[in-house]
Amino acid sequence: MPPKLPPALPYLILLSFLFFYLYSTSLLPHSTTTSSTITTTTTTRTSSCNLFKGNWVLDRTKSTKPLYDESCPFHRNAWNCFRNQRENMGLINSWRWAPKDCELPKIDPERFLELMRNRNIGFVGDSLNENFLVSFLCILRVADGSAKKWKRKRAWRGAYFPKFNVTVAYHRAVLLSKYEWQPKQPTMNDGRKGIYRVDVDIPAEDWATITDYYDVLLFNTGHWWGYDKFPKETPLVFYRAGQPILPPLGLFEGLKVVLENMVSYIEREVPRKTLKFWRLQSPRHFYGGEWNQNGSCLFNEPLKEHERF
């Protein structure tokens, strides 16, 4: 059984995930450290520091060469910006997040893996978590070149880092709750081709049975909750305790009920020792169509505060 998580580790992990998220395409060079040099200092903070309040700044004074390149074996080919020669990568990689009253440290994959030694990290949700995971794995691989692909326990993708005995994996559950396609029945005369039944009180099988394996879990859902995914011809229909919820819930009312039930399930069934995080959504940024309708990301700078697209 792995040792108990130290009291300071939740804060350190949160900082690490925040940093990986903000810097997944604009990473600073890595200088190797050993476990004997690891300290508990993570940021320069003041009493009013809030890591989530700050600005994106264009920083051309520091080297912006990413920690990994197109050869990382954990890349998804269609999302490999290096191999696909995404334009203006040098400019994009020059943006960094600057909190208002503190500084984020340089990223250190070896330090993070040392903190997580003999523990496992799981991501559960949609493609935002999956894409995050890919960058995360490529970053961590810098500290352990012997990392291997890992797809056990119903994981869609993941990696094992033998130098530290750490596993990091992603489990696909786009709605978090269990859902399944049910074709049109003879009694359906409303133009629907069928329905997607969503059991709001039952977690998706891809993650329901694996929570005791992980010491840290990160959940997300959101981008699948739209009428582009589930139009009126093939809608979501919500069930509780095996029966349809009446009156029927709309899409966003259903999302609220699913979240309430999944949070309740996590609090009730996931071991207390497991550190749990909820990841929020990033804004859509496709131009000229959605991701599956020839849309492209043509922007070279982050959205400004209160700016919408």
Rank of each mutant, 00 (worst) to 15 (best):
P105I: 10
L137F: 09
T42I: 13
D212Y: 06
N300C: 06
C49Q: 06
K184H: 05
G295H: 00
I210Y: 10
T274H: 05
V263F: 14
P203I: 01
R192T: 12
E305W: 11
Q185Y: 11
T234V: 04
I195N: 07
L246H: 05
L251H: 11
S264Q: 13
Q182M: 10
R117M: 10
N55P: 06
R172A: 06
P29R: 13
G289L: 00
I245L: 10
D101T: 14
L133I: 01
L137Y: 13
N84E: 13
C49F: 04
L217Y: 09
R111E: 14
T37S: 15
D199T: 12
Y170H: 15
A241H: 13
N292I: 04
S16P: 11
F309D: 15
K65W: 15
S63D: 15
S26V: 12
R172L: 14
S127N: 04
W181R: 00
P99I: 03
L303C: 02
L15H: 15
D144Q: 09
N300K: 01
R60C: 12
T32D: 05
F299L: 14
Y265W: 10
K184V: 01
I210E: 06
R308E: 06
A143L: 04
T33E: 14
V258F: 00
G125K: 11
L218T: 07
K184R: 03
K65I: 14
P183K: 06
F20C: 10
K62N: 14
K229Y: 05
N189R: 08
F164Y: 15
K148Y: 07
V258H: 01
I202K: 09
E70K: 11
G289F: 02
Q293T: 02
S36C: 15
Q281M: 10
L259Q: 12
I38S: 10
D201A: 05
V258C: 03
A98M: 08
V134W: 03
N118I: 11
Y265I: 04
G125P: 07
S31L: 11
R272G: 12
A78W: 04
S24G: 08
R96E: 03
F252P: 03
S71G: 03
L176W: 03
V198I: 08
